[in-house]
Design a protein around this nucleic acid. Sequence first.
DNA 1: GTTCATCCGTGAACATTATAACAAATGATT
DNA 2: AATCATTTGTTATAATGTTCACGGATGAAC
Lengths: 208, 208
Amino acid sequence: MRVAEPTVERLVLYYRLLMQLHNEERRVVSSQEIGEMLGLKASQVRKDLSYFGEIGKRGVGYHVERLYRHVSDILSPDRVWKIALVGVGRLGEALLGHKALRSEKFRLEALFDNDPAKIGQVICSVPCYDSEEMTEIIREKGIEVVILTIPAAAAQVSADRAVAAGTVKGILTFATTAISVPEEVLVYRVDISVELEKLLFFLKGRMA
Amino acid sequence: MRVAEPTVERLVLYYRLLMQLHNEERRVVSSQEIGEMLGLKASQVRKDLSYFGEIGKRGVGYHVERLYRHVSDILSPDRVWKIALVGVGRLGEALLGHKALRSEKFRLEALFDNDPAKIGQVICSVPCYDSEEMTEIIREKGIEVVILTIPAAAAQVSADRAVAAGTVKGILTFATTAISVPEEVLVYRVDISVELEKLLFFLKGRMA
DNA sequence: GTTCATCCGTGAACATTATAACAAATGATT
DNA sequence: AATCATTTGTTATAATGTTCACGGATGAAC
């Protein structure tokens, strides 16, 4: 069954919240409460959670542990992905330390950079390779997901090199530029400038 | 007139592309071409651009410089915002060096951290203050936008301190947790984990 | 046990966003 | 000057997403 992107996004939020509630040994929670904690309408929460079958109990609410496991199952991949990070600059290093990259859903197998001082090093227990050799190494290692933390100018070249390996199925890019890839490769973009611009734009509107 | 959020998001993309085209001394561009370069439908591009009046020329296309200035005007704030960054960890420092924070639309006036080694320092020509003093300093300086690059556990406390100053109108948070603020404060969230999770979820779906 | 307040699941109504379709304008060509 | 290939702006339509409203469970209180 097809699930909408906004729903998946909220599922991740539910997952986090449920983990927290579970740790607090909370037993039961209602859609109302979930909504208040996450800033969503209760009806939205119920609709999202009902996509995957009846999991709550009418008149009672959702059993925290059961719902937690359920959402966890939905989000869990059927295997551990192999990923690589391209660009070990400040942002790349920040990501290496960020909890987003500490997940059991994937293993970070390789870093790439073009700085000779970094090539050959092992950073955060991950080896760093020369960007020039990206295609071969990605292919050898069978890496399927690539995170790009490089300047806009280098993004397309890196994307091309990664895709050329033939094993890459998804790209998460932080570069502030559009990249073009074959349509079978899924691209997600995190664009800090865009979010800031949106914030300022709507602030301007509110002042007026 | 009200403009939809997805439209504003794309306006930023148009803006970037037009800057580039302008630098390349390109004179004219069509909605078709813009769409191809950004991965959008031509009709979408035309609709977005027409929200702000007739700016193209039928049978010809859009005059690059004129459109560039036009989009630039739409996105430009009516004054320079004063902003602060809370949390000078790896992610905060990455942002300090990132081009997203080099904009003429705002001035970064203060940093906040609770690390004694950083308090009192001037980092990237911006003074770093003790997080404890956040409310007073934000109020004194009249800071209106706050960027949170801190762990989830500290996010709500920092948001509360910032909002308590009474001058803050918008928050951009990188924390992986929901924060609750008065409804007159606009919050945007950049959530790296969520984007990665979404990518993996839809990859799983494609494999099946 | 009956009543009652609570709360889920769901289909329908509503709102938003994207796409398609086409008339009107433009400049090139003949 | 008339025709033609383009390309915009806009209206109509389709697709998507959110909220409402209510039937039907559930357990607590008395």
